[in-house]
Design a protein around this nucleic acid. Structure first.
Length: 826
RNA sequence: GCCCGAGUGGCGGAAUGGCAGACGCACCGCACUCAAAAUGCGGCGUUCUUUGAACGUGUGAGUUCGACUCUCACCUCGGGCACCA
């Protein structure tokens, strides 16, 4: 090795990146003779800057893709851009750069940054969701949903972000604030487009069971979000009126304790209920107060319950009692029927309200621990026996529910129902930089969908942005003014665009055949590649993106576009990258730039550190010194392999390893042990950190062997080759270079993953731990697979053990073969 | 309030019923050097009466021959949901 043979990562990395790209190593086509593996990382928003979270996400994905590929799979590993969204528009407003231009230059910059990481992407399939070739099919999806009555427009109280100047989906409101900008969300009555995701609620919930490769945590979050609840819907007659009120309850068994009804202030019956009554004016005031209050302001647990009596009464069909009808802030119009029966004795919320407004409290479920209680201070919601409930007395809660449901069903005043917390997905946005909703409004024909043949509805680029953020589309006459596809008359286009989550709800299908231009993808290609075998990304998408994508997949399945019913078979949610215990952010000033790290140490070092420092699902604490350590390791590998290169180049390995001396045999063992360990870690557990540490151990073993006088270069060669191949998914560049250094002409990235030999893992002797009463007292070396009788004898004959057990009575001896013997003494 | 996850040396972490602390970082010592860096070699949980022993995986109990690992209760931190009837 010459003195100037330094580990020159810059030259090495750019050389091999060019070489791999030129030789199309990552291009794939559908091949039915090979097992496919679709490996996908959540595509990024092209902010223009790669951050460490991206690097971690893509490094993890690249290890999986390369590992699968080296194991003979036909691997699809694509990358694209989730390119619509507000930042581009804000840049346009602030810096007068057109969003399209801003976006494409950001994409170019980020693509270059990604390429310096040496990721095994199939770049031929790259696309951006903001290109007409793509959003044409986002619009196609809208039309298909519309065609199947799953896209509809309704006037509703919606979440309005005053800062983003647009409405938001329920999922995009976090603790009353906008998910993006954290401004307090307001409520507005607007006509908006929705996707009827609620039609899919039962399947979205039930099919979570199929997702055995998903983290429990994500499934639980989705389950809670969908929020299925079983109960009963029935009606109560309004006194002195033909109207009746439909209400929903999960506790029909408590109906005898219903002492009042509560309607949501927006309930359509409220007006007529109080019409002409003394209460009318006050009720109207109350409704006005509620109207503009955001959901959170109105319904947070911290908000005090408020309500008002409507002046009307309803007849409880079970007690034949007249009970007052109230309206209150804590009842929501868009859940259930917007009306509840209040049972203060057995519902905490109703109790709080009843106590505040002096409404009667009646116990109808007996608390078995406190049967004689008379004054209710705490709502009892657990299981008990029905009391004060006429013919239903004595039933348990479960029996009571069934009996009451049967009663209302027989009487034809109600039925068993299931309610979901999930709301329909509000997808229209009053912003410019998104896929235009392909709808035309005609005075004569009404709402008319754009014909498929006319897609895409092109987003005009020559527009004037307004500082307020108000969509400039509203002022682009040649966009708005069009002709009606049905009657040919003058008509106007919808100016709202779609939520960017719509774009990302189907992108994984497009990668299967990204150039298809009559359909979003061909069924043939999609059925070959989908579902995605491994999906990798941040847990922040646990509900939003992952649920929308599941919804789209099921819909595409239903319209026979796709065989898959779930998009992602396995999901890995990686942890955040932290610095000094906090998420990296500009405001905290703790951002480490990937570009700098790659410049200083190279992509291989950056990748190695990120994969070694912590298992993928956990948060990763950034450590500059840790990076140094990874860099140091690669330098040591570099030196060792170069030192050995001449000696191992022309050595060939025999068919059988015979007569190896002990030190050599140990190295041989270590090599095969490492192959097994790394393979298991990558295949089954995604424990990249322990895989790396196993490779480091193999390196350490090789390094010690270097001092051994009678080296067997055949075994050294085997160890070095194994080490390089095992390290390739983590650090492909240095491994490729060293592969050539030891004499290969073919690329290491196409090398087969090594298989361990069972025989090499058999050791003649094992160390057994000898315990007395569970405490380690000695260690002895014995032949492998020693029978218990012999092991017991050897242990008892051991002088230290003899010493410690003399004068003691041996009660019991527990033996674990090849591992441990525990002598229990008294 | 409810649900989920985590808690192990100075630090990142390893071990999921059988040797606690693999691997790495930091630190200490030695070699090389005029010196430093780099590199190499060695040490490195705490305490003590130090060829040995006691203690030690958030706290307390329990199961077991044996518990970081299982069970129960609690504490702390993180995440999710939170008037959804």
């Amino acid at each position: 090795m010459s003195l100037n043979n330094k580990y020159d990562f810059k030259t090495i990395e750019s050389k091999w990146q060019r070489y791999w790209a030129e030789h199309d190593f990552y291009e794939v086509t559908e091949d039915n003779n090979k097992a496919k593996y679709y490996n996908l990382e959540m595509f990024p928003y092209p902010s223009g800057n790669l951050h460490m979270g991206h690097v971690r996400n893509y490094a993890i994905g690249d290890v999986v893709a390369r590992f699968k590929s080296m194991n003979g799979f036909n691997v699809l590993h694509p990358m694209g851009w989730d390119a619509f969204g507000l930042p581009a528009e804000n840049a346009a407003i602030q810096h007068s750069i057109p969003p399209a231009k801003w976006t494409s230059s950001n994409i170019a910059a980020m693509r270059e940054q990604l390429k310096t990481l040496g990721l095994s992407y199939n770049w031929q399939r790259e696309f951006s969701t903001s290109s007409p070739d793509y959003y044409k099919f986002t619009q196609w999806m809208f039309l298909k949903l519309y065609e199947h009555n799953l896209a509809y427009k309704k006037d509703a109280a919606v979440n309005w972000c005053p800062s983003c100047h647009t409405v938001l989906a329920n999922e995009q409101v976090v603790e009353g604030a906008c998910e993006r900008c954290e401004a307090q969300v307001e409520k507005k009555q607007l006509e908006q487009w929705f996707f009827k995701i609620t039609d899919y609620a039962p399947r979205l919930l039930d099919d979570l069971e199929l997702l055995t490769g998903w983290p429990e945590k994500v499934k639980t979050m989705q389950k809670n979000w969908i929020g299925r609840s079983e109960g009963c819907q029935f009606s109560m007659q309004v006194s002195n009126s033909d109207d009746s009120i439909e209400l929903f309850t999960t506790r029909p068994d408590t109906v005898f304790g219903a002492t009042y009804l509560v309607l949501a202030p927006e309930h359509p019956l409220v007006k007529s209920l109080c019409a002409g009554k003394a209460e009318e004016a006050n009720v109207q005031d109350f409704i006005k107060q509620m109207e503009f209050l955001s959901d959170v302001a109105r319904t947070s647990t911290e908000t005090e319950k408020e309500g008002i009596f409507t002046g009307a009464y309803a007849l409880n069909p079970f007690t034949n009692e007249e009970i007052p009808i109230w309206i209150a802030n804590y009842v929501l119009m868009d859940y259930g029927t917007g009306a509840i029966m209040a049972v203060p004795a057995h519902d905490e919320r109703d109790l709080e309200f009843a106590l505040k407004y002096n409404l009667p409290v009646r116990i109808v479920i007996e608390n078995p621990e406190n049967p004689s209680i008379e004054v209710v201070t705490e709502a009892f919601a657990d299981d008990g026996i029905m009391v004060n409930s006429a013919g239903f007395n004595g039933l348990s809660v479960e029996e009571g529910k069934k009996a009451i449901i049967k009663y209302v069903t027989d009487k034809k005043i109600g039925k068993a129902t299931i309610n979901y917390r999930l709301r329909d997905w509000l997808i229209s946005r009053q912003r410019y930089w998104g896929a235009p909703i392909p709808i035309i409004y005609c005075d004569k024909c009404g709402t008319v969908p754009v014909p498929y043949a006319d897609l895409p509805v092109i987003l005009p680029e020559d527009v004037a942005f307004r500082p307020s953020g108000e969509s400039p589309l509203k002022y682009v006459d040649n966009f708005i003014n069009t002709t009606c596809p049905t009657c040919g008359g003058m008509a106007k286009r919808e100016t709202d665009t779609m939520d960017t989550f719509v774009c990302s709800s189907w992108y994984f299908t497009r990668f299967a055949s990204p150039l298809t231009n009559d359909l979003p993808f061909t069924k043939e290609a999609a059925d070959y590649w989908l579902p995605v075998d491994q999906y990798i990304g941040g847990v922040e998408h646990a509900i939003l993106h992952l649920m929308y994508a599941r919804f789209f997949t099921k819909f595409l399945h239903d319209i026979n576009m796709l065989s898959a019913i779930e998009p992602f078979t396995n999901l890995l949610t990686q942890g955040m990258v932290l610095k000094d215990g906090a998420k990296m952010s500009k405001s905290k000033g703790n951002v480490v730039s990937p570009e700098e790290i790659i410049n200083k140490y190279g992509a291989d070092t950056a990748r190695l550190f990120i994969l070694f420092a912590s298992p993928p699902v956990r948060d990763l604490e950034w450590s500059d010194q840790g990076v140094e350590g990874s860099y140091r390791f690669l330098n040591r590998v570099w030196r060792l392999v170069n030192d050995y290169a001449a000696n191992i180049k022309d050595v060939s390995s025999p068919d059988k390893w015979d007569n190896l001396d002990e030190a050599t045999k140990n190295l041989h063992y270590k090599t095969h042990f490492t192959i097994k360990k790394v393979t298991d870690d990558l295949e089954e557990r995604f424990n990249f950190n322990t895989a790396v540490s196993a490779i480091m151990e193999l390196f350490n073993a090789l390094n010690s062997y270097k001092e051994y006088p009678q080296q067997d270069y055949r075994i050294v060669k085997e160890a070095i080759e194994s080490l390089l191949i095992l390290l390739t998914p983590f650090c492909p560049h240095i491994c490729e270079e060293l592969w050539r250094v030891i004499g290969y002409n073919s690329s290491i990235i196409t090398a087969s993953w090594p298989k361990y030999e069972e025989e090499a893992l058999i050791q003649a002797e094992v160390e057994i731990v000898v315990q007395i009463n569970g405490k380690v007292r000695d260690r002895i070396k014995v032949p492998t697979n020693l029978v218990e009788d012999d092991l017991r004898q050897i242990a008892l004959d051991n002088s230290r053990i003899k010493d410690l057990t003399k004068d003691k009575k041996i009660v019991k001896i527990i033996m674990i073969p090849d591992k441990l013997i525990n002598i229990v003494i008294k």
